[in-house]
Amino acid sequence: MIDAAIANPLRDPKDTFRRYTIFGVCAVFVLAVAKDIIIDETDWERMGTLAEMVKTALFFLPEWSFFPQTVLPLLETLLIALWGTILAVGVSVPIAYLAARNITPMPWITYPLGRGLIVLSRSTHEIIFALIYVSALGLGPLPGILALATRSLGFLAKTTAEAIENADPGPIEAIEATGANRLMVFCFGVIPQIFPIFVGNVIFQMDINIRRASILGLVGGGGIGLMFAEVMQNLYYGRAGMIVVGITAMVVVGEFISNRVRERLI
């Protein structure tokens, strides 16, 4: 009964046929991929029985008494995320200036330059930046901070450039009409207009950077990831479980706070 009421009498049977064909092709494709990954590429013999797997998994139950030792690395992670974001804020504004079509100083040179930097930053995983910085500067939080800054400046510059492009040209023209120079037009005509959007995006990046910062240590970028790599190497799985719980809690709280603050802003 409901069927009859809802079914769309206008739906073309040819269209239905096309849908089913597309769906069928996709399904066959996915099954082929599944066979490849799950059957051909996986060594089920070596993996052992289900019981053994469950046994290993149970080793990961958090060892709560390890918590106090995770506090300092968690704090470090938070600081790495914070300083990565702060650096990204500093660098993203000039890049956004280059990458905003309406104010870029030399459209033929600076605009593609700005856009190129944004694409590079956004399409490279933070782990890769961390690897490059670690190999140049050695282990520690410094390359981690730089990796985060490089990773998040693209998003910040992109959203800021978009905000600049959507800014009301009226106030910008009014400041131009007073004879102010480019920099002052930017500071008075543009920045006040984009400020709330920018702050919202910075907070958003801060919250994502906490998650990113927690894995940088796996490649030598400092923070809690380093401790995680160590305990995994020494097969202290209970401690690893504890660390995962700690990070997850920190990230969830961070996201909650960031959402609340951004709601307030709007």
Binding site: E41, D43, I215, M232, I243, I247, T248, V251, V252
Partner: peptide, 27 residues
């Protein structure tokens, strides 16, 4: 919320410990 908060790369390391190396754990 928990799956969002947990870093994927660490989760992958845990899975590798359980299921062994290879794309199954990655998947």
């Amino acid at each position: 919320v928990v799956t969002r908060g947990m870093p994927t790369l660490m989760w992958a390391m845990v899975l590798v410990a359980i299921f062994g190396f290879g794309p199954f754990a990655g998947m």
